Simulated assay, not measured.
Amino acid sequence: MSHHLKNEFKFVVTGVELTEDQQQLVGRAIAQAAAPALGELAPRAALPVAVNPKVWWYGDPAKEVLAPVQDYAAGQVGMR
């Protein structure tokens, strides 16, 4: 999968005022729903990352980023 490909999706809510916590909740729910919808299309190591409460990135992180995350996760589950 090329790192140059990009698909962007938007979800707009009108007619209601949302608190910052509610915005985060909605943003997280949308990101969580999108990940399984991509199924086999996404890279195996794809991760959702909150850029801000309203913007999420979902993709295959660079190896320099993924390795420390994997090390941290291994420590959290007692595998280091």
Rank of each mutant, 00 (worst) to 15 (best):
K63Y: 01
T19Q: 13
A37I: 10
P61T: 04
Y72D: 07
Q22Y: 04
G27Y: 09
K6F: 08
P53A: 09
A31F: 10
M1V: 10
N52L: 01
A35L: 15
A33V: 04
A37L: 15
L25N: 12
Q76E: 09
P53M: 05
P61I: 04
D71M: 11
H3V: 06
Q23R: 15
V55M: 02
Y58F: 14
H4T: 11
A33P: 04
Q23F: 00
Q70S: 08
Q23Y: 03
G59P: 08
K63D: 02
E40V: 08
E20V: 00
P53F: 06
A50I: 00
D21E: 15
K6N: 07
Q23M: 06
M79F: 08
N52A: 04
G75N: 15
Q22K: 14
A46V: 00
E40I: 03
V51S: 09
A33S: 14
D60A: 07
Q23D: 02
P43G: 06
D71L: 08
G75V: 07
V69D: 05
H3K: 13
F11T: 03
A73R: 13
A73W: 12
Q24R: 12
H4P: 01
A46I: 00
A37D: 11
H4M: 09
E17R: 14
Q22E: 15
V12Y: 04
Q76Y: 02
N7L: 01
E64N: 11
K6C: 08
T14I: 03
A45N: 15
Q22C: 04
A35D: 07
A31Q: 11
A45V: 04
V26S: 02
Q23S: 07
M1A: 14
L47H: 09
F9S: 12
V69N: 05
A33N: 10
A29L: 01
V65P: 02
V69C: 10
A35S: 11
W56T: 06
L41I: 00
A73E: 11
P36Q: 13
M79R: 15
K6W: 01
T14G: 07
W56N: 08
G39Q: 07
Q76W: 01
Y58G: 08
V51Q: 07
V12E: 01
E8V: 00
V69P: 04
E64V: 14
Q32F: 11
L25C: 09
R28D: 09
D71S: 12
A62L: 03
W56E: 08
A35F: 13
I30N: 13
L38F: 15
W57V: 06
A35T: 12
Y72Q: 09
